[in-house]
């Protein structure tokens, strides 16, 4: 249902092959244990999605849902435990231990914390020139020119090149991070909460910048975020992750208009609205939703009530999200769909 290419977005790559194709991805982390024995926990389970050229795919979920881990697996920073990731028809598993330079050029990342993603001891311009140098771009003068162009592209001036990260604002640093990602002319950029730490007035500028750059270069974004508002604005399609599983995906407008999964519905209901109008109703709906979930859980054996203090981990997590944990069992048959206010 979600295989159509976005109109006017993919210039010459009209073949049906997506740019990125993730199939049944499992990612496991080593949790603890001694040097000799490994204990792993699976944080991404059987995730499948694809991204077409020139498209923005949103990956939404709450903390611990595995959305960042999925991004790291695509960047080859987290080990794939199962399934395949194909980029432009090449299975990443066949690339071997060393990631080829071409892949490092094609796939870039922009992170949430722009200050942390730049070396505090280097001029920010070096982030760009170092990348160019590694990828064999010209001599020092040419790299400097390219860095200047890249900075201009993201709305920074030459004077910014020789600043240290501590001398720039968060929004400016995020522009540097975007310049570094885009100077290599990548085909896919993983944006991991790339606008979440920014002030509203800065956030809108960076969102517009990312969208303008996409228009100009046809780059694809994997947009990882917890912010439903941002994803609605930016993504063509989106997937909803919950505890490592992709529970729903589809065209952004379709998912927002008619969420299929109960968890998506509860996320939308919990997401604060942009206008106070109708908030009493929304609050009442949320209350009913929680009550319904609590009753469902009691009916299912009263797991929440019997959470004992001797099982701290379970006790700590289960009451926090009782609604989400148990609503899935209730399924989409429950009639209480709290649709957000449809304001234009």
């Amino acid at each position: 249902m979600d295989r159509e290419v976005n109109p006017g977005m993919s210039p010459d790559r009209t073949d049906s092959r997506p740019l990125l194709d993730v199939r049944d991805l499992d990612v496991a982390y080593e949790v603890s244990g001694s040097s000799w024995r490994r204990t792993t926990t699976t944080v991404v389970k059987g995730v499948s999605f694809h991204i077409d050229a020139g498209e923005t795919y949103g990956l939404v979920g709450e903390s611990g849902s595995g959305k960042s881990t999925t991004g790291r697996a695509i960047l080859r920073l987290a080990e794939v435990a199962g399934g395949t990731i194909e980029f432009d028809g090449t299975d990443l598993a066949t690339l071997g231990e060393r990631t080829p330079l071409s892949y490092r050029r094609d796939v870039q990342a922009v992170y949430q914390d722009p200050a942390g993603s730049l070396n505090p001891r280097h001029h920010v311009g070096r982030a760009v020139t170092d990348a160019l140098k590694r990828h064999g771009t010209g001599d020092r003068a040419e790299r400097q020119d390219r860095a200047r162009e890249a900075f201009a592209q993201v709305g920074l001036t030459d004077a910014h090149l020789s600043r240290f990260p501590s001398e720039m604002s968060g929004g400016q640093l995020q522009r540097v991070a975007i310049a570094r990602a885009l100077v290599l002319e990548p085909r896919l950029v993983i944006c991991d909460e790339a606008v979440s730490a920014l002030d509203l007035s800065t956030q809108s500028q960076i969102i517009n910048l990312l969208m303008d750059l996409q228009q100009a270069s046809g780059v694809s974004y994997l947009f990882i975020t917890h912010d439903l508002g941002v994803v609605r604005h930016m993504a063509h399609r989106l997937g909803v992750l919950r505890k490592g599983e992709l529970i729903e995906q589809g065209d952004t407008s379709a998912v927002f208009a008619d969420p299929q999964h109960e968890y998506t519905r509860s996320l939308l209901a919990a997401s604060p609205s942009s206008h106070p109008e109708g908030r009493e109703q929304r609050r009442a709906d949320r209350l009913a939703r929680r009550r319904g979930a609590a009753q469902a859980s009691e009916g299912a054996g009263g797991t929440a009530a019997s959470a004992s203090p001797t099982a701290p981990a379970a006790a700590a997590s289960s009451p926090a999200r009782p609604a989400t944990a148990d609503m899935r069992q209730a399924g989409p048959t429950r009639p209480m769909v709290a649709r957000p206010e449809g304001r234009a």
Partner: peptide, 13 residues
């Protein structure tokens, strides 16, 4: 730290 990860993503050795 993220800047090391970013350097990785840039392809630095």
């Amino acid at each position: 730290k993220l800047y090391v990860e970013s350097a990785h993503v840039s392809g630095l050795r």
